[in-house]
Amino acid sequence: MSTLWRRTSRVRRGVRILLATLASLVTVGLGFWGLYNQSTLYVIENGPPTSPFSLPLSIRNPGSVFRATNVSTICHLISLRLGPITMDNVRMKNKENDIAEIGPGETKLIPCNITNLGSEIKATMEISGTYKTLGITRALRKKHFNWQKDAVPPRWIEGD
């Protein structure tokens, strides 16, 4: 009986060690995932421009550990109406919108500029893009802005 008791005690001890090790690995993994997820980039406004042809935005990396690399943004003009003329789905991609790296806690400017076309304008802009964290490509959360010509001062306002 004592030999059987020793064997089951060893098995129980081994199972406890295995469970403690698994619990530690899960805890470390969840902590790492939380830090990784904290580095999700987002778009912020830099203040109200007074022209529908300039949308000064920034991308912020709120993380405290991981840097974002190969950040590439697209300014997608969903709709533009100039009096009787309507344009839909115009994508603007400039080299100045590509950012090599955004470090933890950093904010970088991404200008979305359009050539001046006139004063009777209605426009909606969508900002999207991609970046890498630890070599994994991720998508920037899309954001919409509408040109409000009747606002004081006239400006881009976030929303659909």
Rank of each mutant, 00 (worst) to 15 (best):
G14H: 06
G14I: 03
G14T: 03
L19I: 07
A20D: 09
A20P: 13
T21S: 15
L22T: 02
L22M: 12
A23L: 13
L25G: 14
L25C: 13
V26C: 15
V26A: 15
V26I: 15
V28M: 04
V28F: 14
V28L: 15
V28E: 04
G29M: 07
L30A: 10
G31C: 14
G31F: 09
F32H: 13
F32D: 06
F32V: 14
F32Q: 12
F32I: 11
W33M: 05
W33I: 08
W33F: 11
G34C: 04
G34T: 04
L35F: 06
L35Q: 12
Y36L: 09
N37F: 09
N37G: 10
Q38E: 10
S39E: 04
S39M: 06
T40Q: 08
T40Y: 03
T40I: 02
T40A: 08
L41C: 04
Y42T: 08
Y42V: 00
I44F: 03
I44R: 11
I44C: 01
E45G: 10
N46D: 13
P48M: 10
P48D: 15
P49F: 03
S51W: 07
P52K: 15
F53K: 03
F53G: 10
L55N: 14
L55Q: 07
L57K: 08
L57Y: 11
S58H: 14
S58K: 13
S58Q: 15
I59A: 13
I59D: 12
R60F: 08
N61Q: 06
P62F: 04
G63T: 03
S64M: 01
V65G: 02
F66M: 03
R67C: 00
A68S: 06
T69A: 01
N70M: 01
V71G: 00
V71Q: 00
V71L: 02
T73L: 04
T73Q: 00
T73S: 05
T73M: 01
I74M: 10
I74H: 09
C75Y: 09
H76G: 00
H76A: 02
L80G: 03
L80C: 03
R81E: 10
G83Q: 07
I85Y: 11
I85G: 07
I85Q: 15
I85F: 14
I85N: 15
T86S: 14
T86Y: 14
T86I: 14
M87D: 11
R91L: 09
M92D: 12
K93N: 12
K93V: 11
N94M: 07
K95N: 13
N97S: 10
N97W: 12
N97H: 06
N97L: 08
